[in-house]
Design a protein around this nucleic acid. Structure first.
Lengths: 156, 156
DNA sequence: ATTGCTAATTAGCGTTGCTAACGATTAGCC
DNA sequence: GGCTAATCGTTAGCAACGCTAATTAGCAAT
């Protein structure tokens, strides 16, 4: 019922035919994500590292586990990303004295600097594209951003 | 507790503050893409393979080069994806007799079957989420899908 | 025939996700 | 106290999917 029951194969029609929102949304998001990744500058920081720095600068220090939850990736993936950040001096690891299994990750001054400097450079391409849209189209995207946020959420 | 004093920019306000649509859109798209990838069933076909099959079933046979253009990936990446599809018997390669540098990729019956069967199963998770939204939210997403399509477009 | 272009491939690398298995530490229970 | 859980982080190794550089094959034009 979500996308209605798309009786037929849905392929052979106009691209914007409301055949199936889930199929269309999926391919649009994957394609745009690919395009965004493609736009990598040759900076010495990766997308996932930058994302973690952003979370840390926004929410403050936290443990690797909570970071992994927040980014919705597995703990081992987070471990690797953090290793890169530690090597670059953008975060610090410190053991929690009360529970020595845990580790606290905090952003360094250099890390905060990188967040501030890199964010907009990294999105320069996208900003240029967005600037060419009509204002109401940007408004739609802004709404869509919020909705997509709830879609990726962990509930259910 | 946010450790630092988030001087100026940053995202420390409402998510929809027009501070930077590009930053917000980028992170929303990347996160949703990650979430979608996570939702991989244990099917014997990958996301990129399914995408190619979808293009072939929609637009008909074409060359690897045109497929790469369409998906906005490099020719070598397409070569690899096609190798997988050929191995699984979902597409056929045939040389163009008029220009023997070129190769024509066409979808097989098995491939078309897979497209029809897999699409909706693959998007089941997303469909469920979408079903819980308000109709007008789905409408916004449908609009956003079209706009994102122009964003990933090749011009400029 | 040589030169130059284009299409596709091969070879090899980087990023980013995963699962399984392993220490270290804490907590619960006898 | 001492044994067993459960928890947190990490290590090891794999898969997917993007790239560039270089190679091979075929075409075109001088």
């Amino acid at each position: 019922m979500p996308t209605s029951q798309p009786s037929a194969s849905d392929s052979c029609v106009k691209p914007h035919k409301p055949s199936s929102l889930s199929v269309d949304l999926r391919s649009a998001v994957l394609q745009l994500a690919r395009r965004i990744r493609q736009e990598r500058s040759d900076e010495a920081i990766t997308l996932s590292e930058l994302a973690v720095l952003g979370v840390l600068s926004f929410h403050g220090a936290m443990t690797p586990g909570r970071l992994a939850d927040h980014e919705q990736i597995s703990p081992p993936s987070m471990t690797r990303t953090l290793a890169g950040l530690v090597a670059k001096g953008y975060v610090l690891k410190s053991g929690d004295p009360s529970d020595r299994r845990q580790v606290l990750i905090e952003i360094t001054g250099a890390g905060a600097e990188v967040v501030k400097e890199t964010r907009h450079r990294r999105t320069a391409w996208l900003s240029r594209r967005l600037a060419k849209l009509e204002p109401d189209q940007r408004a739609i995207l802004a709404d869509a951003v919020r909705i997509m946020g709830t879609l990726s959420g962990t509930h259910s």
